[in-house]
């Protein structure tokens, strides 16, 4: 058993993280998305696969991302996800919301 517990991804932000990742790197497979989030956050945020794939499926249903099977670098088939215009709009919405909320939280906890 691990001695330390990793901080969890705040609820509700997983969509935003995935969308942002796809916006930055273009088409990417699930593993890549998880890796990217982990690396960019300096190993602070680790995406559980158990949440990642259902989230990707839900985003497919909502039409924020589209998926396509492609050959990957070492000649393996993988499902690549990319942002749709709808997803881009959703990302903007979520970022806006997140900024508002986190700004508000910051103001509350830093008030003397």
């Amino acid at each position: 058993m691990e001695a330390t517990t990793r901080p969890e991804i705040p609820p509700g932000t997983l969509y935003m993280l995935i969308l942002k990742t796809l916006a930055r790197v273009g088409a990417m497979h699930g593993y890549g998305v998880a890796q990217h989030i982990q690396q960019t956050s300096d190993d602070v945020l680790q995406v559980e696969e158990g949440s990642l794939y259902p989230a990707l499926q839900r985003m497919l249903v909502k039409g924020w991302v589209a998926a396509e099977w492609k050959q990957s670098e070492n000649n393996r088939r993988a499902r690549y996800y990319r942002l749709t215009p709808q997803g881009r709009k959703q990302l903007a919405r979520e970022l806006e919301q997140y900024r508002q909320v986190s700004g508000a939280i910051t103001r509350v906890i830093e008030a003397v």
Binding site: G30, E49, Y53, R76, A78
Partner: peptide, 11 residues
């Protein structure tokens, strides 16, 4: 497809 995706992920 989901099976394949998960296999790929583990590999």
């Amino acid at each position: 497809e989901l099976d394949e995706e998960i296999r790929d992920h583990l590999e």
